[in-house]
Design a protein around this nucleic acid. Sequence first.
DNA 1: TATAATAAACGAAAGGTTTCGCGATGCAAA
DNA 2: TTTGCATCGCGAAACCTTTCGTTTATTATA
Lengths: 337, 337
Amino acid sequence: MSTIKDVARLTGLSISTISKYINGGNVLEKNRVLIESAIQKLDFRVNQAARSLKTNKTMTVGVLLPSLDVSFFANIITEIEYLLLDAGYFTVVCSYNHDPRQEMRKLCYLIEKNVDAVLMVPEYLGADEIMKISEIRNHTTPLVLLDRAVEGLYVDCVMVDNVRAAYQATCKLIRAGHRRIGIVLGPAEISTARERLQGFLQAHTELAVAPDPECIRQGDYSLESGHAIFGELMDMPNRPSAVLATNYDMTLGAVTAAYERKLRIPEDVSFIGYDEARLSRIISPPIDIVTQPTHEMAEQTTALLLERLRSGGDTPKRIRLECGMLNGQSVAPFPAP
Amino acid sequence: MSTIKDVARLTGLSISTISKYINGGNVLEKNRVLIESAIQKLDFRVNQAARSLKTNKTMTVGVLLPSLDVSFFANIITEIEYLLLDAGYFTVVCSYNHDPRQEMRKLCYLIEKNVDAVLMVPEYLGADEIMKISEIRNHTTPLVLLDRAVEGLYVDCVMVDNVRAAYQATCKLIRAGHRRIGIVLGPAEISTARERLQGFLQAHTELAVAPDPECIRQGDYSLESGHAIFGELMDMPNRPSAVLATNYDMTLGAVTAAYERKLRIPEDVSFIGYDEARLSRIISPPIDIVTQPTHEMAEQTTALLLERLRSGGDTPKRIRLECGMLNGQSVAPFPAP
DNA sequence: TATAATAAACGAAAGGTTTCGCGATGCAAA
DNA sequence: TTTGCATCGCGAAACCTTTCGTTTATTATA
């Protein structure tokens, strides 16, 4: 493995000149040619460890996710990755597999690996624990939270107005005449699930409809749980006339459960799904879908990350983006006209 | 940020003693106590850049995937991650988002970041291009391929016997009496898709059934394409009486398409899916599924990686694992008795 | 008590890069 | 021809750790 020293020797220039060239400094044209050919011949690559040692930077952003295969996050991260690359930053992802112990452990590892910033989707971690990490306490390593806040933790955060999104979807159902509405929620430990429930309840309150606790059911944001819970709801003696599923996987699970029971949407049950517009491309009639602003989330998150990476600490920013609603044909008036 | 030097000063010991302790060497009991409390007080952490510079190791394995949200890969990687962590290695994942240019670029980045080994699921990259990377040519950075080989590239590889898996599934359909069988394939550029097609054709040849080219259709391993292609097959004037979908997402897409058309499985069309056993938990009647040995793949891959990490180069190993078949009730005799 | 054997601590070099202040060089203007 | 100015190149220090060969301390043995 050849070093900058070898390049210096081969070109007859000094180490500092080579370093200058490598880092975009000006060198004499003839030296430029010389250096480039030497680099080529020696197959020289900058030793990143040495560079990091000196600069205290890795030009790498660490992303920590609860799981690798949640398409909602995967989509956002993919976009962020492109944006960060444009800014010269490499992105590495790692997952804690919904495991509370791994969540802390991996966060520490990432920071110890000297990533320049961490972007994370938290799940079970508390503010006190995160604050134990000195790099975060001292703002040495910027931390940005995605999709979910951590109570009592004052760091940058990009999220979505979950309350309002669920509120609007629920309102739509109530306005269509539905009075017993089922909701398929995520785990109560996760703030998005709590917020969506809150919006659901708020719509009931405002429109003076009493929610039935039996119709409020908690899953784990997985395909299977969406399937199971939708099934349970439909098997109730007085089943809800409409259902709201609150993420992509559970939406898909709910739809398969409906199909399986030969329940027609919306004739037999009205339905609103979540997250992926492409869902309506494979379900007919197309369903109504609450869409989250993934592009905007990616952009805002990247902007936030870059700002922190460039100019460091400031008072934390908390960004809330609005969700949209893709109108389909899965909400019918109730009772049927 | 405090360094080993600070710890040395505070304890009155030498730098080398501290280093020895950090790396698991023996020190006097009283010194141990001293060092530990100093480390605590100073909140000392090893500077990984400095360590890497010296040792030429990062204790990190880089994983390169075509996309983050393919659950088949995500499952395997999650398991590998645990196994590698036990062996002291940290795993970082990155994705090239099915983008041929990114595929090469990210591979180079990973290697430049000094990961100790790369595990990759290749897609479009050719052997010649990969061999341009000197670290791989010289076996400086071990490269292990997962799921797919690269033609002409002689490196370690853990894959599955796709030909046989598709062969057996197809045989099952033919033996049940089906003569026109549809297959929903992935992109021809991807070796697994070609192999699965080969197995499909081989079964036809051996059992003396002529395959209909019209029934052989290529998608892109996505939910939508599974949906679309299954739909196309069912819309044919003389549609196949059985269909084989060749990955998880396309299976799910196919099933929703069947539901949508109110086609009963297996009464109206026999069906075999792929990959995820849990599929049968949300589809009724449970479907027959070709299962890939994800656990074993994870184990073998990890073993291979660790071997390379520990003892370096050797003649490349190519491991082929057998797939299984989960019997459901989605294959009916044809014509119906 | 002296010596050998063992264990622990030490000092110094090495690993490859960036950075900063200073010296050299080249060119235009006077 | 000399002066002034702008560029460019250079040397050396610094970043923090590991490692290896050597010294010192400790314990056991004769």
